[in-house]
Design a protein around this nucleic acid. Sequence first.
DNA 1: CGTATTTGACCGGCGC
DNA 2: GCGCCGGTCAAATACG
Length: 317
Amino acid sequence: MDRREAVKVENFDGSPTFCATNDHVQTSYPFMQGHGFDFVDGDKSALGFMELLGMQDFSPSLLDVIQVPVPPAQAPNVQVVMESPPELLNQPATPNSSSISSVSSEGLNDEPVNKSADDEVEEQEKNKKELKPKKTNQKRQREPRFAFMTKSEVDHLEDGYRWRKYGQKAVKNSPFPRSYYRCTTASCNVKKRVERSFGDPSVVVTTYEGQHSHPSPVMPRPNFTGPASDPGFSSTAAFVMPMQRRLSFYQQHQSQPPPPFGNSFSPLGFGYNESTANAAVNYLQFEKHFCSSSGSNLLKDHGLLQDLVPSHMLNEE
DNA sequence: CGTATTTGACCGGCGC
DNA sequence: GCGCCGGTCAAATACG
């Protein structure tokens, strides 16, 4: 049971996608395609979840940005899928077979057209218009966005930060509304949008924009030593993403200047209960299957991650 | 009563 | 110029 398989599925455009799957979680990495990544390739096979997040190198600082607490007892059918091309987000994710998940840097349902990563970033740059300062020629410096899909029953997933809902809009071509949240912490202008996937209503698409200028109020930064003290986060997991690494990804692969980031340890942070924990664990599984034979330094990091992920989660296979 | 959510109005960008 | 759309504001409302 719980035997994980490394499977190869095909994206909707026919391009291959590798997935690490188990009974509850499926994580695919289709968006590596087109970014110069090829899992079949020996050298690049060491790329994994972190690269999806834009991390180019694994260093001890990983401890600073990744926190994977003990998952709650309940194991909902959570699915975290990764993909890059925004257009895929509009495609129906098949719950029973291979699901499309996604880590996208920009607009999800916004642009249902085929675009390369370069085009995407270019458009993102184009969209950076000034909104507040009216009548200025300066383009708005829109914060970098990071989107991913999570299979979850609830729309608004706990991620360790406190959010205040400030709007809700109907989404074109979707029966589900999109909710807009803002970090309640003063001087932190991180926002996120939450919407359900039209293709698969069980999938929640979350788009983060900006960078937290503060540690998670419910997830103290240092090493995970147990449940956080915050009552609202007692059984949830925090998974803080190293946004800066992700940016270096763009910097290196797309010749785009990195958005201005302030601090170094608390970039765009997000955690997702079981979802994120599963994603992290899934990454480890994925890594085992695809990378253990060739990625020596990765193994080191793997061990590092093992320190973060409960051992029982890793031994489930 | 303070805080969070709801929801219609408003604004700016963009395509035609 | 106009309409559509995404995103935000803010008053009203709900909630603890």
